[in-house]
């Protein structure tokens, strides 16, 4: 995955909460307060801010996979890091290990819409949420199989999120197709906390939304919303 920060304005221009997060929540029934792809606002060296949409980094040397005592977190053959919530024992050592704060725990019975309860559970979409287990962004492997982009990439109004395949060296944001390796090198892409050696599979192209007309000094984004706060019987939400 490549995220072009030059095109991310935190959805200031559309005046909504970040649409990647919103689409992810809609698609995965991600329970509140989980933002599997979360748009952080970070300061820039010369003042002003940039927005950093942060999905699971799908590290190649994934600390969470290394420390899981029961192998509930694993690499698929394609390399995606998934969680088997039917095996997870809820020890949360993966949350301690993740240096990107990308893991979420079902502390109580998660608020989810009733339709989530009718889904067949699979680690690839993680619905319905299981109390006492860890969840996170799954890179939408089921969507890719049916030839669609992940929810976040589809939801992005500025087409800032590219999704691709390291094997075929190709990525797309739905509009254009790029040669992945060339796209990364030409734009001096970087990865979060490169120095930790986690080898993330999410790359960032530096920027602060300038390609879609955002000024770095325009701060703040709309808070994320969950449409189904109370739609599951006995559900309780919590804060992170």
């Amino acid at each position: 995955m490549v995220i072009d920060l030059r095109r991310c304005d935190g959805c200031q221009s559309v005046g909504k909460p970040p649409q990647c997060t919103a689409a992810c929540i809609e698609g995965h029934f991600a329970p509140a307060p989980m933002e599997w792809v979360q748009v952080y606002e970070a300061g820039l060296p010369g003042g002003g801010t940039q927005f950093i949409p942060t999905p699971c980094q799908n590290c190649q040397n994934a600390p969470c996979v290394n420390v899981c005592p029961v192998g509930a977190t694993f690499h698929t053959p394609e390399g995606t890091v998934l969680i088997d919530q039917q095996r997870c024992i809820g020890c949360r050592i993966c949350m301690e290990a993740c240096p990107y704060d990308r893991r979420f725990f079902n502390w109580g019975t998660a608020p989810q819409p009733p339709e989530a309860l009718f889904m067949d559970y699979s680690p690839e979409h993680q619905s319905p949420a299981i109390r006492g287990t860890v969840m996170k962004c799954d890179f939408c492997p089921d969507m890719a199989r049916s030839g669609r982009l992940p929810y976040c990439a589809q939801g992005c109004p500025n087409r800032a999120i590219y999704y691709g395949d390291l094997e075929e060296d190709v990525a797309t944001n739905g509009d254009e197709v790029v040669r992945l390796s060339r796209f990364l090198s030409e734009n001096a892409a970087y990865r979060l906390k490169e120095e930790l050696g986690t080898e993330p599979r999410v790359h960032y192209i530096p920027g602060h939304g300038e390609a879609v007309g955002r000024s770095a000094s325009r701060k703040g984004r709309k808070p994320t919303e969950w449409p189904w706060q109370e739609r599951r019987a006995g559900a309780t939400s919590w804060t992170r």
């Binding site: 190709v170 797309t172 254009e176 197709v177 790029v178 060339r182």
Partner: peptide, 15 residues
């Protein structure tokens, strides 16, 4: 010309 998921188009190889 390249194609991936629902994206298709010309991908730049050299410039």
């Amino acid at each position: 010309p390249m194609r991936f998921l629902n994206g298709a188009g010309d991908a730049v190889l050299l410039d």
